[in-house]
């Protein structure tokens, strides 16, 4: 409840900027689409229509990077708030993930726009779209707990995370589909939790993606594991976090 209140007050500040939550990912999709599809003419990259293919993955990707990089800072410079906070410490992380999620939800019209531009309609498997959101939420919450508590102990983690994020962008099927990568590498891709999540987002438009369902299962399993590990690590490091406050 408090998180909601918190979000409200935060959003009041940024309401003017709402358009940007749409324009930014849209711009990014268009640029990437232009580079890869038009300039390089990579017809076999990803699935068609490429613009929609891109935008549907870029939005969750943005949510992911923003949320996770924010969690590295979540316990910094809190101005003594943690010293007096009687609220559960997890709430600080939940708040970051939730507010970035709302930003993500608000930017979803970009997908509608891409659908309109490419005149594509989703199949019945689109029901997995909300499931994907849910899975991503829990995955991010777990990872956020993990990273937030670790970065209190190791302040450099923020920078490491930034680099890992950059690498992960290219290692995840945002620009391409996992059917694009060589067959012998595909099993390894399954260990990237984002493969499963992004796959769930796309499955409504490209039902043929379901072939790789085995890979999804593994990467969703990793999501669950991350969630559990995150909670355990956070429990152990919570006293430490409070001491640094």
């Amino acid at each position: 409840m408090l998180v909601l209140r918190d979000l409200q007050t935060q959003y009041k500040k940024f309401r003017l900027g709402y358009l940007w939550t749409i324009l930014e990912p849209l711009g990014m999709s268009v640029v990437l689409w232009f580079v890869f599809s038009v300039l390089l003419g990579a017809r076999d990259l990803g699935l068609q229509p490429y613009l929609l293919f891109l935008s549907i993955a870029i939005l969750p990707w943005w949510w992911f990077t923003r949320g996770i990089s924010a969690t590295t800072r979540v316990f910094r410079r809190k101005g003594g708030q943690l010293r007096i906070s009687l609220l559960p410490t997890e709430l600080w992380i939940l708040r970051v993930i939730a507010s970035t999620m709302i930003e993500f939800l608000l930017s979803l019209p970009v997908v509608l726009l891409a659908m309109a531009l490419t005149k594509t309609l989703p199949g019945p498997l689109i029901v997995f779209f909300p499931v994907a959101i849910l899975v991503q939420f829990f995955f991010m919450y777990g990872l956020g707990l993990l990273i937030a508590s670790w970065s209190v102990v190791v302040p450099d983690l923020a920078r490491i995370v930034r680099i890992v994020m950059r690498a992960l962008f290219y290692l995840s099927p945002v620009l391409y589909s996992i059917s694009n990568i060589p067959a012998q590498v595909q099993p390894f891709a399954a260990f990237n939790p984002l493969v499963g999540i992004l796959g769930l987002y796309r499955i409504g438009f490209w039902p043929e993606e379901i072939e790789t369902v085995g890979a999804y299962a593994i990467s969703l399993g990793i999501c669950t594991a991350t969630f559990v590990v995150g909670i355990i690590v956070f429990r152990r490091l919570e006293p430490r976090i409070l001491k640094e406050a």
């Binding site: 408090l2 209140r5 918190d6 007050t9 708030q81 007096i84 906070s85 609220l87």
Partner: peptide, 12 residues
């Protein structure tokens, strides 16, 4: 008031 009160345990 909402924010700090919340920290100190008040419900909204």
């Amino acid at each position: 008031i909402y924010f700090v009160g919340g920290l100190l345990g008040m419900t909204p």
